[in-house]
Design a protein around this nucleic acid. Structure first.
Lengths: 153, 153
DNA sequence: CATATACCCATTGACGCCCATATATTCCCA
DNA sequence: TGGGAATATATGGGCGTCAATGGGTATATG
């Protein structure tokens, strides 16, 4: 499985370390298993994360913008300066930077939600509520959900 | 990671020295870890910096502008003639030339902002405000920012 | 010679690395 | 197939190393 799926709730220890769920670690390329990138979610009070490979993709894309345009600076600033890289230790744990932790309201536990190509970290209560809310919104449009789920191949 | 990412705020000591963030030092080629180039940002009151290797890339960018345009001369002059090289000492610190420091309004602390292939140095307050402004501009066009961040592969 | 800058050494706190344990999971073999 | 052993995962904690910072002294350069 090379996608981030399922959800987990892990504890944050005294030193601020939290285990990246094992199944998530396995999604990272064997080469760079010891480094991930984190950034504030644009739309929700949560932290998003993924492997560094994704960052290089983003970098390439930004690099293709007109270097002297205002857009270049805006993207570059909003993305690169907001992204933090974090090292995953041999036990699979990492530190969540304070700024991100407070942005997401995370204190003693972090809830990990697989999102396919990336994952989110939430304060557990808020995260679960968000899941319910999304599901509720989707169910309001059953038709489209059914279509999404039953479409083949 | 071979990109300048994240942000840091470091102190400037009595002698005018400031630490280049460790993660930034690691972006510089192992060969030339003791030298960086600095120049005034064209669009903002900040200082931009990078390893000496990137000079060629900047030259290329400028060379791609129309040779007979006014822009060509302006960029060429503004950037090349303003570039200064600075030595990084064994502890990873360097001196910010007075002219650049006053251009950016930097006094006792410098904020380092990763920008991918280069970095910026700001007076902390102004730098943080600039980040917010950038983000605000981009969020007005949610589509583009989301695209930049979530496109897969 | 005077000022600026490089080199050396020191301190503090944060972080990485290592080892340890408890629980859960898988595997293997009788 | 049941039970026990080997393995993996989440978690806890000790300790050495490194990053950021401060300061003394040598050296260079005009």
């Amino acid at each position: 499985m090379d996608l981030f799926v399922s959800k987990y709730i892990n504890k944050i220890d005294k030193k601020g370390r939290v285990s990246l769920p094992s199944s998530f670690r396995n999604v990272l390329p064997k080469a760079n298993r010891n480094e991930i990138i984190l950034y504030k979610s644009i739309k929700t009070p949560s932290i998003e994360g993924c492997g560094v490979g994704r960052l290089k993709e983003i970098a390439k894309r930004i690099n293709n913008l007109d270097f002297f345009s205002e857009d270049y600076d805006d993207f570059s600033t909003s993305i690169f300066s907001e992204i933090v890289t974090t090292n995953v230790d041999k036990e699979g744990r990492f530190l969540i930077p304070e700024e991100l932790k407070s942005y997401a309201g995370i204190k003693t536990e972090a809830a990990f939600f697989g999102q396919g190509y990336f994952f989110q970290m939430w304060e557990p209560k808020q995260g679960l509520k968000n899941t319910e809310d999304s599901r509720r919104r989707l169910l309001k449009e059953k038709k489209s959900l059914r279509m999404m789920l039953t479409q083949q191949k």
